[in-house]
Amino acid sequence: MGEDAKGEFEPKIIGFTCNWCTYASADLAGTSRKKYPPNTRIIRLMCSGRLDPMFVLKALLNGADGVFIGGCHPGECHYIKGNFYARRRIAALRTILKEFGMDNRVRSEWISASEGDKFATVMREMAENIKKIGPNPLRGKVL
C-alpha cells in the first residue's frame, strides 16, 4: 500500500484469522457495517493452530507493517485446543521479535463470532498504532 495520494503513510497489515471465530467476527463487523480503515488483508486459516511462526516472520520480512492474529477464545476452539498452541507459539515468537524491535507490530486477540464490534475496534486501533510506529524498516529491502 505504501503511501496514499497525500503522501501519508498507509500501513499494510496482514491478518491471520481462524475460520470459526475471528473470520466470522469480521463477517459480523461487515453485516453490522462497522467501518474500519482498509489496511488489513485477511488470510483465512481453518484454525489459529495452523499459524506457523514462519508466516508471521515471512510477512514482516516481506515488508508488512503489522501482523494481526485472531483466534477463538480459550476453551472455545472449534478444534479443541488449536488456539492454545497459537498462544504458546506467539509467546515464543515474541521473544525473538523483541530482539529485532518488531514485537509491537504483532498483535493477537481472541475474538468470538459474536464480537463484530471488537474486530472492527481492533482493526482501527492497529491501523492507528502502526501509523504511529511508522513503516516497517525492512520494507523494500532485499534480504
Binding site: I14, R41, I43, L45, M46, C47, G49, R50, L51, D52, P53, M54, F55, K58, A59, N62, A64, H78, Y79, G82, Y85, R89
Partner: peptide, 28 residues
C-alpha cells in the same frame, strides 16, 4: 483438519491440504 501438526512439524513433512505453506506464502 486444524493444521496444528503442519505448523509444528520441524522437518516440513506435514502439511495441511488446501492450506499448504506455498499457498499461504503466495498470499503474503
Amino acid at each position: 483438519g486444524c493444521g496444528s501438526c503442519a505448523s509444528y512439524c520441524p522437518s516440513g513433512a506435514m502439511s495441511l491440504q488446501h492450506f499448504r505453506d506455498k499457498q499461504v506464502y503466495a498470499q503474503l
